[in-house]
Design a protein around this nucleic acid. Structure first.
Length: 377
DNA sequence: AAGTCTCTCAACCGCGAATCG
DNA sequence: ACGATTCGCGGTTGAGAGACT
């Protein structure tokens, strides 16, 4: 394996030692392949196509001893007839010693799906949550495996929503499913002090994209840090840390009553906490757990039913300015639209485009079959 | 056995962002 | 401020292997 070879090489390359590099793979040039293996760029001919072990060796030797301060100069310095771009790609995607090869684990697959639901096709960002994996690898795995798996389960791999009946081509479609894009929406934006941001980050980590079968595990504790995490959130924590960074992001999957629970009351400068959903407005009024309110115990009720109930509730409360208490936190129903929370340093957290990412149900990730989904009424 | 199809994945391409002079 | 260069990313391609007919 090139990676192992690279590791071995690096181990032996602490100085200008004799290179003990073994050709990482059997390379037997196919006379039929690469009919035009060279591309003229200016006066120089640049080789294209698959890399030979000799080229790998040259590149590894060069980078491990000199680094790659400038990729465009690497080919010349390394004695390769390649463009810098090709060298960079080869190193990053194949020769880097810290790469992990082999099949993706279930956990990795889960992480990819979860992060993809939030970030979309940002393969480089997704790969950052998978140590030793490259964006190219993740992208290929998505296109070749996960995508098909989701489709076969009746989910749109782009939106992560359930496909409409007409789009589902086989009998694997779930018995009860929704075509709606989401049950809930949060359109809250925050600006916060760093300590508040820490809480937000930590609270976001408590958001589980997974379906839960035990509803009692979902309510976040209203502690000062206000976090209840919920099964294997390590990666999500990282993800939401990222979400609190420079990118606009999405927060998903509140439909299963996994909560954001942030005790802003501890912040002297806080002015409120807005949770909204543009259709049902249910969290704010039902303690975040709609199926407790409307459905049989431990059952999640259908979307349409929820909507009906929500509309009734909304009508009842429409003209009121009430304050609701949830887990020791107060909400008001005027917060059905975006509500800004302002903290000291003016930093901000952007939930802008959460809507499309909000899943009606945690799906396909930590479940063995579609039957495990708690959609049945 | 041979031809065709499908799938995987390494590599390329083009574009936008960042950096440099 | 601006153009050139470099970098990084996502989409796409195509070779090769295996499955299927």
């Amino acid at each position: 394996m090139p990676r192992e070879a690279a590791k071995a090489l690096i181990e032996t390359c602490s100085g200008p030692h004799e290179l003990k590099f073994q050709p990482p793979h059997s390379f037997t040039p196919d006379p039929k392949a690469n009919h035009e293996p060279y591309l003229s760029v200016g006066k120089q001919k640049v080789k294209r196509g698959l890399w030979s072990p000799e080229e790998d060796e040259k590149l590894i030797r060069h980078i491990t001893t000199h680094g790659h301060s400038c990729w465009s100069s690497v080919p010349k310095l390394a004695g390769l007839q390649r463009c810098g771009k090709s060298c960079r790609l080869r190193w990053i995607n194949y020769l880097r010693p810290d790469l992990k090869r082999g099949c993706f684990s279930e956990q990795e697959e889960r992480t990819i799906i979860d992060v993809h639901r939030i970030l979309g096709n940002r393969w480089a960002q997704i790969a950052k949550h998978l140590p030793g994996r490259t964006d190219n690898e993740v992208k290929n795995f998505w296109n070749s495996c996960i995508k098909k798996k989701l489709i076969s389960q009746g989910f749109d791999p782009n939106t992560h929503n359930l496909l409409s009946r007409t789009h589902q081509s086989n009998k694997q479609k779930p018995n009860n499913y929704y075509t709606s894009s989401s049950l809930f929406t949060i359109e809250t934006s925050f600006s916060s002090s760093s300590s508040s941001m820490d809480m937000i980050k930590a609270s976001l980590a408590a958001l589980s994209p997974f379906p839960h079968t035990n509803s009692t595990t979902t309510a976040a504790a209203a502690t000062s840090t206000a976090i209840t995490t919920h099964q294997s959130q390590t990666n999500l924590s990282r993800l939401y840390e990222f979400a609190c960074g420079n990118y606009k992001n999405r927060v998903t999957n509140f439909g299963n009553s996994n909560l954001v629970n942030i005790d802003y009351q501890k912040q002297s400068t806080s002015t409120g906490f807005g949770i909204i959903n543009n259709e049902n407005c249910m969290w704010a009024v039902t303690g975040f757990e709609p199926h407790h309110e409307f459905g049989p115990s431990n059952n999640i009720i259908g979307h349409e039913e929820m909507q009906r109930e929500a509309q009734v509730q909304l009508q009842e409360k429409n003209c009121q300015e009430e304050v609701y208490k949830v887990n020791d936190h107060e909400f008001n129903n005027s917060g059905l639209i975006a509500e800004n929370v302002t903290f000291g340093d003016g930093s901000s957290f952007d939930f802008e485009f959460v809507d499309s990412a909000l899943m009606p149900c945690g799906i396909y990730t930590n479940i063995n079959s579609i039957d495990q989904l708690a959609w049945e009424c």
